[in-house]
Simulated assay, not measured.
Amino acid sequence: MKRIAVYCGSATPADERYVALAREVGQTLATRNIGVVYGGGMRGLMGAVAQGALDAGGEVIGVIPEALAIAEIANPGCTDLRVVTGMHERKRAFVDLSDGFLTLPGGVGTMDELWEAVSWSQLGYHAKPVGLLNAFGFFDHLLAFNHHMVATGFVRQSHAGIIMAEPDLDLLLARMTGHEPHVPIFGMKASDL
């Protein structure tokens, strides 16, 4: 993987472990020569991921919607800052520029990005790994809900493993590197659906 899109919160939570984690993720990716593609902000976990990567000499591509860039939250320190018209273009750029997706703790926007990466994988719009860093058990309930969707039949068994979750970054990156694509919905026959 040459580049990974990192999805994470723009907020700075009171628990400092989250910011330290984000900085460590950016630094680790840079030391492994993996570029970071992210939301282009300079605050919260987003800013920490970018700064960790930049401090380690890594490539950081920020993709930010015009409205947020105008609000002066764009990170001018990115090696490449791209201003797009809106969120749809931003998420398309994440897919086009990266070889996989890594989700860290965050809020509604982070969940939107994660679920779109999962949905697009399931359908067949991309065949890239979707990783979830379940640090501090942050995503335990989300993973339980995903298992519930599989158990009730709303997610096909063949797509149950799209989300690769690990509490440890090294394990997660190893799984993402070894990713083998599943058969997407676009590749199925009507009788398989």
Rank of each mutant, 00 (worst) to 15 (best):
residue 11 A to S: 15
residue 12 T to S: 15
residue 12 T to C: 09
residue 12 T to F: 09
residue 14 A to Y: 10
residue 14 A to K: 15
residue 15 D to G: 14
residue 16 E to H: 14
residue 17 R to C: 13
residue 18 Y to C: 02
residue 18 Y to D: 06
residue 18 Y to F: 13
residue 19 V to M: 12
residue 21 L to R: 04
residue 22 A to C: 05
residue 23 R to C: 10
residue 23 R to F: 13
residue 24 E to Y: 10
residue 24 E to H: 10
residue 24 E to L: 13
residue 24 E to S: 15
residue 26 G to A: 08
residue 27 Q to H: 12
residue 29 L to W: 12
residue 29 L to N: 08
residue 29 L to C: 05
residue 30 A to L: 06
residue 32 R to W: 05
residue 32 R to Q: 11
residue 32 R to D: 08
residue 33 N to W: 03
residue 33 N to A: 08
residue 35 G to K: 03
residue 35 G to W: 02
residue 36 V to G: 06
residue 38 Y to K: 04
residue 40 G to I: 02
residue 40 G to N: 09
residue 41 G to V: 01
residue 41 G to Q: 01
residue 41 G to M: 05
residue 43 R to S: 13
residue 44 G to Q: 04
residue 44 G to M: 06
residue 45 L to Y: 05
residue 45 L to A: 05
residue 46 M to E: 03
residue 48 A to M: 14
residue 48 A to C: 12
residue 48 A to V: 09
residue 49 V to N: 04
residue 50 A to W: 01
residue 51 Q to E: 15
residue 52 G to Y: 08
residue 53 A to E: 02
residue 53 A to Q: 06
residue 55 D to I: 14
residue 55 D to G: 10
residue 56 A to E: 11
residue 56 A to Y: 11
residue 57 G to R: 03
residue 60 V to F: 00
residue 60 V to A: 01
residue 62 G to Y: 03
residue 62 G to D: 02
residue 63 V to P: 08
residue 65 P to I: 00
residue 65 P to C: 03
residue 65 P to M: 00
residue 65 P to W: 00
residue 66 E to H: 13
residue 66 E to C: 07
residue 66 E to K: 15
